[in-house]
Nucleic acid binder design. Structure first.
Length: 645
RNA sequence: GCUGGCGUAGCUCAGCUGGUAGAGCAUCUGAUUUGUAAUCAGAGGGUCGGGGGUUCGAAUCCCUUCGCCAGCUCCA
């Protein structure tokens, strides 16, 4: 039998008999590699360890430490789940079951819904299958023949997939009694699955099409070790504890009320303080950066939205128009037309450009009833919006400034990780965009060049652009690693033309300006939600609704506590006094649960020496401090917007 | 909007197969005068999300509507 020459990752070349499997290669290299191997990469192609290698090739063994390892492992876990489902629930029809970023899922069509109890039973069955150490056996079928087998099993979803996607001879994987149409690769056997958990069951639709079959999706996750799984589950718990909806209630920050309607936010006094601090900082920053602050009406004549193109391209996100004196008015879903009207209110000279109009503009968008989510997805929200009108040659610089501003925002609010996406048009779907192909190419090129010049890594997302132009989106990553889309910088060559905007150039002639839409926090509501989760409700001093709470040891010290609170308030600090008739311990506990940064315990000792005993939220008793020293310290923490102290 | 789950006091939740509501915390009152994460006692508080139906009788069963949760889809 002839030999094949296999190139290993370290560059060495070794000869093996033709038809050797990657598993055999691994064994030849080291028993440990063979034991750990999950799959193999042969000439760039991911294959099973048991696949024969017939020609010279480069071979790499995929192990748990390879980036692809976990994905393959989870895909195999999904098959394991499906195998368990078919054993326990023969009436379930399997759909698809891919790995995801955090685990895997498998979709089934079934009349009866799966319950939480079913998940426990399925986990037990999966354990049995793991114990049985069944191989993931790759088998091949000619298309017609294979199709018949799946038809006999009544797996109509699989049949549909095979008809649409299968090669003339297609591969499938057998795990015990379960046979799945699948490209692979898979791990060698079920015994290799070490740590998994089924997490939830939720609805889904066949191929994501809501008119198609309703399916039940079972979510699970799998890791190489129990330790990793436990760490993941702990992270889920942590996320639950940080949930802004829960903290919003516990800390009395905001509410959403049935009586008022879904997706509409009530900012309570404590949330209101946080919002005001954010807005004050932002406004000062806007002014410093050459923006002009404006205000525009919440409802305007529908006619404007026809000009802007919103009634064509955005109607399904708009509340219905209201009739006023034989005319129609529209609650604004965006702030752009208002700012455009300000621009248009008089002739503009090139000397005033770029004109940066900023507004904390409240907009209303119709969201389908199932999509609202706390502060993160609502129907009424305030954008920290701005529209920059500039000459074409200024626009790249303006985009750069916006991104630089966005980075400053991230830093100020304690975020240090981010991801950047460039959203371009979908070239196959040009009718959903306003403007010509040339204009789009120009705009996308300009955004791309700007990011490259700033040396910012980014991903290009085709088909993600808005109807009037391409955009750069910035996602921040919060304290527990979740990304949130907030900042958006959008290029617009469309609206200026639709509204007939002009400026007089140095040549004395009229020209059309270019417009940049940008929001940095995105929406104040969403940003607030993200902030709550990022800080787990424990805001830095400058944002904390109550910055310090006086805790008089007994009623005797109430007067002193009130006097000091008054002094600190005069120094513009947010201080309150817990004058309830409760044990000190109980009041400390409450302040702690309210995540107030500083507790000031005052009793005889403090009253005599004009001091306060400082208890820090995160590290407990910090000893006595002169009142004036404490005030100065607080001032510094606030003015520097310190996130740690 | 779609699929599934759910909606009981301000909050968190109990209430088996229908017999007309209960706990802890919170609130109020009283006692206690507190030194770094829950003092004790008493009281008030619910047309069981809304509407309709089945039944002698509904928090419990059915229909409908609103809302919430997990997803799908979509987005700041």
């Amino acid at each position: 039998m002839p030999n094949v020459r296999l190139t290993l990752p370290d560059g060495t070349v070794r000869e093996f008999p033709q038809g050797v499997t990657a598993l055999e290669v691994a064994r030849a290299l080291s028993p440990r590699l063979a034991a750990e191997g999950l799959a193999a990469r042969v000439d760039g192609r991911l294959v099973d360890l048991t696949e024969p290698i017939e020609t010279d090739a480069s071979v790499q063994i995929i192990t748990p430490s390879s980036p692809e390892g976990l994905e393959i492992y989870r895909h195999s876990s999904a098959h394991l789940l499906a195998a368990a489902v078919l054993e326990l629930f023969p009436d379930a029809h399997p759909g698809v079951g891919p790995p995801t970023e955090t685990g895997f899922f498998y979709d089934f069509y079934r009349e009866k819904p799966f319950t939480e109890d079913d998940l426990a039973k399925l986990e037990a069955k999966m354990q049995d299958l793991v114990a049985a150490d069944l191989p993931y056996e790759r088998v091949y079928f000619p298309k017609e023949e294979g199709l018949k087998i799946f038809e006999q099993k009544g797996e109509f979803l699989k049949c549909q997939l095979i008809q649409e996607k299968a090669e003339p001879v297609f591969s499938a994987y057998r795990t015990g009694k379960f046979l799945d149409f699948c490209r692979g690769p898979h791990i060698p056997s079920t015994g290799r699955v070490k740590a998994f958990k089924l997490l939830s069951v939720a609805g889904a639709h066949w191929k994501g099409d809501e008119r198609s079959y309703p399916l039940q999706r079972i979510y699970g996750t799998a890791f190489f070790s129990k330790k990793d799984l436990d760490a993941f589950l702990a992270k889920l718990e942590e996320a639950k504890k940080r949930d802004h909806r829960r903290l919003g209630k516990e800390l009395d920050l905001f509410s959403i009320q049935d009586e008022a309607g879904a997706g509409l936010i009530f900012w309570h006094p404590k949330g209101g303080i946080v919002r005001k601090e954010i807005e004050d900082w932002l406004r000062a920053e806007l002014v410093a950066r050459g923006y002009d602050l404006v205000y525009t009406p919440h409802a305007m004549r529908l006619h404007l939205w026809e000009i802007s193109g919103h009634t064509n391209f955005y109607r399904e996100n708009m509340f219905g128009p209201m009739e006023v004196e034989n005319d129609h008015y529209q609650l604004k879903p965006m702030n752009c037309p208002g700012h455009i009207l300000i621009y248009k209110s008089r002739p503009r000279s090139y000397r005033e450009l770029p004109l940066r109009l900023a507004e904390l503009g409240t907009v209303y968008r119709y969201e389908r009833s199932g999509v609202m989510h706390g502060l993160l997805r609502v129907r009424g929200f305030t954008q920290d919006d701005a529209h920059i009108f500039s000459m074409p040659e200024q626009v790249e610089h303006e985009v750069e400034e916006c991104i630089e501003f966005a980075f400053q925002v991230l830093k100020t609010f304690g975020f240090d990780q981010y991801e950047v996406e460039l959203s371009a048009r979908d070239p196959k779907n040009s009718e959903q965009y306003a403007g010509t192909v040339e204009e789009w190419e120009l705009a996308e090129g300009a955004l791309k060049k700007t990011l490259e010049r700033m040396k910012i890594p980014f991903k290009t997302m085709p088909g993600e652009a808005v109807f009037y132009g391409p955009k750069i989106d910035l996602k921040l990553v919060d304290a527990i690693g979740r990304p949130w889309q907030l900042t958006t910088v959008q290029f617009d060559f469309n609206l200026p033309r639709r509204f007939g905007l002009e400026y007089v150039g140095s040549d004395g002639r009229g020209h059309t300006p270019v417009m940049v839409h940008r929001a940095l926090l995105g929406s104040i509501e969403r940003f607030f939600g993200v902030l709550i989760e990022h800080y787990a409700g424990a805001f830095p001093v400058w944002l904390a609704p109550v910055q310090a709470r006086m805790l008089p040891v007994s009623e005797k010290h109430l007067e002193y506590a009130r006097r000091i609170a008054g002094e600190l308030r005069a120094a513009k600090l947010r201080v309150d006094v817990d004058d309830r008739n409760e044990k000190l311990n109980a009041r400390i506990r409450d302040a702690q649960l309210q995540k107030i940064p500083f507790m000031l315990v005052v009793g005889d000792r403090e009253a005599q020496s004009n001091t306060v005993s400082v208890r820090r939220r995160d590290s407990g008793d910090a000893g006595a401090k002169a009142v004036s020293d404490f005030g100065a310290w607080m001032r510094e923490l606030i003015d520097s917007r310190a996130t740690k102290w």
